[in-house]
Every structure is written in C-alpha cells, then in structure tokens.
Simulated scan of single mutants.
Amino acid sequence: MSQQKVFFPTNIKFLRERKKMSQESLANALSFTRSKLASLESGATRAHQPEDLLMISEFFKVGVDALLKVELSKLGEFKVSQLLAGNDVYTTGSNIRVLSITVDKNNKENVEYVPVKAKAGYRNGYNDQQYISNLPKFTMPNLPERGSFRMFPISGDSMLPIPDGSDVIAEYVQDWKAIKAGTLCILILKAEQDFVFKQITVQEEGQFLLTSLNSLYHPYTVPAEEVIEIWKYYKFQSEILPELPTDFQELKRLILDVKQDIQQERSDKA
C-alpha cells in the first residue's frame, strides 16, 4: 500500500499567507511559539499533536481531514472560498455539510418557515438543530420528493414583479458550482441581517454576481466566502397580484442612472 501524502505543513503556510498573517501573528493567535509554528510549516514536526490539529482547524474553519489530505493551494480560489465558508466535502463525507432539518411523524421532511422576526437570528442558528426544530413547520403538496425545502419571507421592490412581502419556497443547493447563470436564489450571507433574494451567477474568481429582477437596482458582487447557504427558488406565494413596472418606476431608474453617471464623472476628474 502506498503511503498517503500529508499536506498539513504547506496548508498551514498557504492559509496563513492567504490571511496575510505573519508567522508571529498567527503563532500569537494560536498561543504557539513562533518556533513551534515554523517547525509545523517546514514539516520538521512529524508527530502532530491532536490539540494542535484541532486548534488550527478551528482557527481557519477547515476540517482536519482537509488540512491533512488536500493540497489546498491547488484547489483554486473558488473552491477554497467554498471550503472556508463551511462547504467542506472532506469534513462531512458528502457533497457539502449536513443540513439541519425536521421531519413529520411519517419521517417525511417538513418545510420550515423562517418568519420575519427570526430573520436576524437565522444566520447564527441555521446549523443549530434546536433552532431549526423551533421554527414553524408544515407540509406542502406537489413539492418534488427529492431535495430539502424552506420558506423565506422577502421584502422590498428589488425583485418586482414578485411582490414585496411574498413568501419564497426554495430548495437547498448542495453544489454551488452547478448553479446556472441567472438562477433565482435566496442567499444567506454572513454580514447581512436579512435574506438576499436575487438572480445569481457564479464567477470564476470566487465571486457571486447578484442581479435584481427590477432594473432600477444595479447588479453587485459578493465573495463566495461570505455566503453561508444558497436556496434555489421553486415558487412563491403572495396575497398581492404581481404588477408590471410603471412609468414612474422607469423614470426613477433613469434618474438613478443619470445620478450614477454624474458621480462617476466626478470620480474620474478627481
């Protein structure tokens, strides 16, 4: 049997440099001496202490299995960003981390509903089984048997003609790389208190391009490492009938475009 190659030393150095940290600053963060960290990075330390492995794994948010077995520098920025966002195939043994769900008495998955009052807490409790079990839950007819579904309330007019206040039923996305350009999705972001409902396109440099259905709003990008979860749009329900854009909305879009052009010209002259 051939010996398994271990990438732990080079992975520590790669992750440290990726965070733009010196050996001294990382050693201080881990409560190591600099000489100890230098030995780990150089491969001089062969018998790695379990406590050291766990501490480094926790600091960089990378599973121990990946730290040992995967040459992270060869993955590319997008895959590394996914891994650091918690999508660690090597830790869970599946395509992505295990999703917390609830089931009914027949062992069929529920559709959990994240009400408006729970929005702010969801990004902290999304992977907490107790938090998920306390969410309102129900079953829906005509949902596909495959997949896990959740319902999210949306707000604002950026996704018109889908009305403000609609409830979006969406399917959990396990493989982000499989998302087709322009797919409607709910994104849970680390830095947002609310959900982001947009058309998303995965870009090669580890970024997501987010585009609104309402042309009044300009597209923007977020780094993959800021994304906690992605849920693919399935359908929505609302008490309000969708409306077509009005002349007033079109005028507002033109004014915003002119304002942006003026700001750009001032920036270019500065």
Rank of each mutant, 00 (worst) to 15 (best):
E226T: 08
V227W: 00
V227R: 00
V227Y: 01
I228F: 01
I228Q: 02
I228S: 01
E229C: 08
E229N: 09
I230M: 10
I230Q: 00
W231I: 04
W231D: 04
W231K: 07
K232Y: 03
K232M: 12
K232F: 03
Y233M: 03
Y233P: 01
Y233Q: 05
Y234L: 13
Y234Q: 12
Y234M: 10
K235H: 04
K235F: 14
K235T: 13
K235Y: 09
F236T: 02
Q237F: 15
S238H: 07
S238Y: 09
E239H: 10
E239F: 09
E239K: 11
E239C: 05
E239L: 11
I240N: 10
I240S: 13
I240W: 04
I240F: 12
L241E: 13
L241G: 05
L241C: 11
L241A: 14
P242H: 04
P242F: 02
P242N: 05
P242Y: 02
E243Y: 05
E243M: 12
L244K: 11
P245G: 02
P245K: 00
P245Q: 03
P245H: 00
T246G: 06
T246S: 15
T246A: 05
D247E: 12
D247K: 08
D247A: 13
F248W: 05
F248P: 00
F248T: 14
Q249A: 06
E250K: 08
E250T: 04
E250F: 08
E250S: 08
L251Y: 07
L251V: 10
K252S: 07
K252V: 08
R253W: 05
R253Q: 15
R253P: 00
L254D: 15
L254F: 06
L254C: 08
L254K: 15
L254S: 13
L256A: 12
L256Q: 11
L256K: 14
L256W: 05
L256N: 07
L256Y: 08
D257H: 07
D257N: 09
D257L: 14
D257T: 14
V258G: 01
V258F: 10
K259M: 10
K259E: 14
K259W: 03
K259G: 03
K259Y: 09
Q260V: 10
Q260D: 11
Q260T: 14
Q260Y: 11
D261Q: 13
D261F: 10
D261T: 06
I262Q: 07
Q263Y: 07
Q263H: 08
Q263S: 12
Q263A: 15
Q264L: 07
E265K: 14
E265W: 09
E265P: 01
R266A: 09
